[in-house]
Write a protein that binds this DNA or RNA. Structure first.
Length: 875
RNA sequence: GGGCGCGUAGCUCAGUGGGAGAGCACUCGCCUUACAAGCGAGGGGUCGUAGGUUCGAAACCUACCGCGCCCA
């Protein structure tokens, strides 16, 4: 298998230098570099063509191409290439995200290997170090995008931390600040005790974890009250116990105080509507500094907040527990309470929902702290309205419900992060508590110091559709390409990113939406629909597939699985199938070249064409129409499926086989031209999904410069030919029936059989008799022809075969009986319907007619099957 | 707990009122001058369960069972 069969074909016929098998590795790099150097992907804002633009969801600078990117990029590249061929000026803008926490973590890990922390370097040196890291190791994904074939405009690559984008960040921050849409406040936020930073709500992942539920008795005797908690350690920070105001069990206690165990503090018992009387004992401990719900209860009842842990989740309250980590403190405190006889019940394990840092998986600690927030109210309203009024459509539309649920209930967005890598908050503080927000071209007053925090990475990502085009300047790019045409991304970041781009885009761009369409795709899963995970060992590395099967096969596998809104299962077997498909195209084109296929000159007029040529041209028109329709509705799987079947079934299995005799003869010219045309069009249609093999083949076939710039096929209604399609359907039926007979009879393909065909004229295919004979391997009846079997094909065609007396009667009887059973079932179904008066009376006329036709066909079949069975010799 | 979605062939999925489909897998036969990464033929499904609407339900409605995702 290692040796290629490059010169196996007779060299008398030109093959365009194509080997017997497609070798993607040899083609891809060469083609890609050529496309880029020719400038095919460079967008021109001054162009007269209508614009089509996509901004890439910027991958993390730390990232490498995983299979999710491969899907996302395949779709974007497919759309970009399609639109380019359709005559649009296409901008697909690439770039990367600085990925605050992720990148800082990477560099900190490197420092840790040298026993250093970022504090040893200091802020300035550390940030320098991160830039160094980026220069050396960042952006591996960019090279990998080339291998996938991404037709991005490399001349416009951007980075969220580059100068222009930083300027955009500062500009919008100041605007929002001045519009009072950004504020600073002491709030309870999600805190990662490992990353030591605040997180926004959506950077927290909830999972059901095993914990414990401990019931603790506060107070003594009649005034005792039992609270249930999963976080016993936080009792050190309790400032109240809350019950529901209507809870009869506790009415007498409302307004009284109990002693908080282990501390000697006395805390009030308050009534609050938000307490669920059915949870636990119906009484809850209130720790305003360490729980978001408790924080709100605290606000409503004016309770003090006692912070009992530091930023690393270590207990800071003086006493025996001071210095213990939260997980050490929990059992220690439970033990101490148990000793006092205060533990009433313990449930272990107790499964409940726990939040984790989306970056490092550490359990999030709610923490009261001073942070910056975006007031999302008016921004989220506008973001919802843009979808509601149709300026932005979400595809598939069902997912817009989720979008509304999110934007209509958005919490204020915590945007400050206690990190060093990111856009530093442009707010400066004066010696006397002055606060100044500094714009891009402004200087802070002397003696002021800048806020230490940086912005959430998603803050700059939210500006991506316009910051990358030069905003806040009014650039030709913005003029031409904003709003962007489509945003392609996974439904998992609808909230992270899409909603935020909508808010900032509408705000910054005078209420013009950042994109017209949001095309959401699913998550890539393994061949059994399971989530890919390292621990499960089912992760596909797209680069591995590209290496072994080619970028086109990888892309086709992904696109073929991409049904709207649903996840995309892939497996290596299916990728092999895609590779086989590319090879099929390769060989079809090779065959065409060996047989003089050409794209020179006009197509011959219909009246000069054979039914076969007219048929394939007609089929092609339908396919063009279907592909256009499916692209318009983002049905990538159906685009692929349609083209796969047209190419393999119609073109290769039938058209090429039917054309072989003509192409080998002296009157091949018309078919050579039609074959050239069909392949030319087919390769164009496939190019957006599988760019490399189509480019190689199209150039070989047509001698053109590149299929990248070729015009997208348009339907020619003149070429639709129903008569030719019916004719070919009849022809296919005869051939298939004879093949089935041969197969059932165990006749080998090499075994020629004499046969007489009658009745072909009944369906107008008498002229195709030689073809039928060739495809079904039937010889003309010679002297001494004796029919030993008769095959009655529906449509009054009869094939008498001379099988030299060796007919397998049992096999033939079985075959006919199977046909009879099917026909009987069909006839019975039809009769039942037609015998139903309600059906006749209420069903539409064309349905009734159709059923009548079906019955007639079934009855005719039954008659000929009965005759054939009758004619069989008895065993 | 709230919301959304899904149960169709061994696997993964199309089909959304009128003849149960595809890819892969499987069985049988073939080195057939483009392709064995191929060609030809075939087997395989009470469309999750139970009711209902309808002349007619895989599709529409209700309930239940099972699974998934998002949010709290």
């Amino acid at each position: 298998m290692t040796e290629t069969t490059q010169h196996r074909t007779p060299d008398s016929r030109p093959t365009g230098g194509l080997s017997a098998q497609y070798q993607p590795g040899e083609v891809e790099q060469r083609r890609y570099e050529n496309w880029v150097s020719q400038g095919y992907f460079t967008a021109d804002p001054a162009s007269d063509k209508p614009p089509f633009s996509i901004v890439i969801p910027p991958p993390n600078v730390t990232g490498s191409l995983h299979v999710g990117h491969a899907l996302d990029h395949t779709i974007q590249d497919t759309l970009s290439r399609l639109k380019r061929m359709q005559g649009f000026e296409v901008l697909w803008l690439p770039g990367m995200d600085h990925a605050g926490i992720a990148t800082q973590n990477v560099v900190e890990r490197q420092l840790a290997a040298q026993q250093l922390s970022r504090h040893d370097l200091g802020r300035e040196k550390f940030v320098e170090k991160v830039w160094e890291w980026k220069a050396q190791s960042g952006g591996a994904i960019l090279g990998q995008m080339r291998r996938l074939g991404d037709s991005v405009d490399w001349s416009r690559e951007r980075f969220t931390m580059d100068e222009g984008l930083s300027r955009a960040v500062q500009t919008i921050f100041k605007r929002l600040y001045e519009d009072e849409l950004i504020y600073r406040a002491n709030r309870i936020i999600n805190w990662c005790p490992r990353c030591l930073t605040a997180l926004s709500d959506i950077e927290v992942e909830h999972t059901d974890d095993e914990g414990e539920l401990v019931s603790i008795r506060y107070g003594e005797g009649e005034n005792a009250i039992v609270v249930a908690t999963t976080r016993a350690e936080t009792m050190l920070g309790d400032t109240a116990v809350a019950v529901h105001p209507d809870d009869e069990r506790y009415k007498h206690l409302i307004g009284t105080e109990v002693e908080l165990p282990l501390t000697g503090r006395r805390i009030p018992i308050v009534a609050d509507e938000h307490v669920d009387p059915s949870f636990g004992t119906g009484a809850v401990k209130v720790t305003p500094a360490h729980d978001p719900n408790d924080f709100e209860i605290g606000q409503r009842h004016d309770l003090p907040s006692i912070t009992m842990m530091d930023e690393r989740a270590v207990v800071t309250v003086h006493g025996p527990f001071e210095g213990l980590d939260r997980y050490e403190a929990r059992p220690a405190i439970v033990a101490a309470l148990r000793e006092e006889g205060r533990i009433v019940a313990e449930k272990r394990p107790y499964v409940h929902s726990v939040g984790h840092c989306s970056r490092c998986k550490t359990t999030v600690e709610p923490r009261l702290s001073l942070q910056w927030f975006v007031n999302t109210g008016p921004l989220a309203k506008a973001a919802g309205d843009a979808v509601r009024d149709g300026r932005v459509s979400i595809e598939p539309a069902e997912l817009s419900k989720r979008y509304f649920a999110w934007v209509d209930n958005m919490h204020d967005w915590c945007i400050s992060r206690q990190l060093w890598w990111g856009h530093r908050i442009p707010v400066w503080y004066g010696p006397d508590g002055e606060v100044v927000c500094v714009g891009p071209d402004e200087e802070p007053p002397a003696g002021f110091t800048q806020d230490e925090d940086v912005l959430d990475t998603w803050f700059s990502s939210a500006l991506w559709p316009f910051s990358t085009m030069g905003w806040p300047e009014r650039t030709p790019e913005l003029e031409k390409f904003y709003p962007t045409s489509v945003l392609v991304t996974g439904y998992d970041i609808l909230f992270f990113w899409v909603a935020r781009m909508m808010m900032f885009g509408l705000y910054a761009m005078d209420d013009v939406q950042p994109f017209n369409v949001v095309n959401l795709h699913g998550m890539v899963r393994d061949g059994h629909g399971k989530k890919m995970s390292k621990s499960f060992g089912n992760v596909v590395d797209p680069l591995d597939w590209i290496e072994r099967y080619g970028a086109d096969a990888t892309r086709f596998t992904l696109a073929r699985g991409a049904n709207p809104g649903s996840d995309v299962p892939i497996s290596e077997e299916w990728c092999q199938g895609s590779r086989n498909f590319c090879n099929k195209l390769w060989n079809a084109t090779r065959f065409a070249l060996m047989n003089g296929a050409t794209v020179e000159g006009e197509l011959p007029p219909a009246e000069e064409l054979s039914a076969i040529d007219k048929w394939i041209l007609s089929r092609l028109q339908h396919v063009i129409g279907e592909v256009d329709e499916y692209f318009a509705t983002y049905e990538y799987a159906k685009v692929c499926d349609t083209l796969y079947h047209f190419a393999w079934d119609d073109v290769c299995d039938w058209y090429l086989e039917l054309s072989k005799p003509v192409l080998a003869g002296s009157e091949a010219a018309n078919s050579q031209r039609v074959l050239g045309h069909v392949l030319d069009q087919l390769l164009r249609l496939l190019h957006p999904v599988i760019p490399f093999v189509t480019e190689e083949l199209w150039v070989a076939l047509t001698g053109g410069e590149t299929v990248v710039k070729a015009q997208w096929p348009a339907i020619d209604k003149e070429l639709i030919d129903d008569a030719a399609e019916e004719e070919l359907a009849a022809l296919q039926k005869v051939v298939t029936e004879v093949r089935r007979f041969r197969s059932d009879q165990g006749l080998k393909p090499s075994q020629r059989v004499s046969a007489a065909l009658t009745g072909l004229g009944n369906v107008g295919i008498d002229t195709h008799e030689p073809l039928i004979r060739s495809l079904a391997r039937l010889d003309a009846p010679g002297d001494g022809f004796t029919a030993t079997a008769t095959l009655a094909v529906s449509g009054a065609i009869t094939v008498d075969l001379d099988t030299r007396g060796t007919i397998d009667v049992a096999a033939e009887r079985a075959r006919l009986e199977k046909d009879r059973t099917a026909a009987e079932k069909e006839a019975a179904q039809c009769r039942a319907k037609l015998g139903n008066e309600s059906f006749i009376g209420k069903a539409p006329e064309q349905v009734v007619t159709k059923i009548k036709d079906r019955l007639a066909t079934a009855e005719a079949d039954l008659t000929r099957i009965a005759a054939a069975l009758e004619a069989l010799p008895t065993a």
